[in-house]
Design a protein around this nucleic acid. Structure first.
Lengths: 155, 155
DNA sequence: AGTCTTGTTGAGAATTATTCTTAAGAAGTA
DNA sequence: TACTTCTTAAGAATAATTCTCAACAAGACT
């Protein structure tokens, strides 16, 4: 099953289960984020979606992304100082956030993937998924102008 | 040593190390976030700081928070659909984010605290700290109106 | 296939959040 | 004390996001 088909099936199932409608706009927005190799911001998603749906409004993209987020189909990505960006988490991965430029890097880690959700968390609500968030200075910024000296111990 | 003194010492050291000045505004902003039991947004920090520095401008709070973030003294917190919020990570903890209301809950987990930063991450840059991010629906939202049915597997 | 219900959208407008500009203030050094 | 220059505040501007409401359309039912 191709990723696109998998994504569509997931979208359909989730919308149905929640009594929501499957619209072309929702399809295109979701596919845009799911197919994206990075973390697109709203206007980037808007541009992508407009290729197939030229009349789609920016507000629709906002509304759709937040609705997909509520449904767990996409999630806003931690970044530093940048407008909100989204990730469809089509595959398990973790994030490294640069404190300086705000870039968010994906990385894989089989060892981190093995970690169970601890009991303590379940008292807070229904947990859908987890990933590890790292924070520091990316290589680009390190090489650029002397990395910022970290003033914060293990967080 | 009290938390306040520890925070001040950390601020001072980090600013010095980076050739930056220690200003009253920076002190108050940092102490406000460090003393906060939750994750204050910019305007909340502004209100707190104004108690001791009534003329501080909102722009200064924004600038100071982003500068502190670059320095690793505070970090923006993942949230869903809310304006940006900050955490000083004075103590190691992890986050549970509600996909519905956007609330971010802290939780402690000794087992998660033990996790080492994997090798894969170090190729991306200099890692300062890590925490686990969980995503789901909080108890408040579950009890409120039938939790959103999750359409997304383990992320 | 047609009708109906109502969720969803788009265009235009409005609001909110954030950043810019620039002169003055102030932290820190000599 | 004088000097350098980083940092700030006030006012303005910009960018990001959300609202309003009539029209459209997804999906259920007949």
């Amino acid at each position: 099953m191709k990723n696109r088909d998998k994504a569509l099936a997931r979208l359909k199932e989730t919308l149905e289960t929640n009594g929501l409608r499957m619209t072309q706009q929702r399809i295109e927005v979701y596919l845009a984020v799911a197919a994206s190799g990075c973390h697109p911001c709203v206007s980037e998603v808007h541009e992508m979606v407009r290729e197939n749906l030229p009349t789609v409004s920016l507000d629709t993209v906002y509304r759709t992304l937040w609705k997909l987020s509520e449904l767990g189909l996409v999630a806003p990505v931690s970044s530093s100082g940048d407008r909100v960006r989204f990730d469809a988490y089509m595959r398990r991965h973790h994030h490294f956030v640069c404190a300086r430029c705000g870039a968010v890097y994906d990385f894989d880690s089989p060892s981190l993937d093995e970690i169970r959700i601890p009991e303590e968390a379940w008292s807070l609500g229904c947990v859908w998924n987890s990933h590890m968030e790292l924070r520091g200075i990316c290589l680009g910024c390190c090489n650029e102008g002397g990395g910022t000296e970290e003033g914060h111990a293990e967080g």
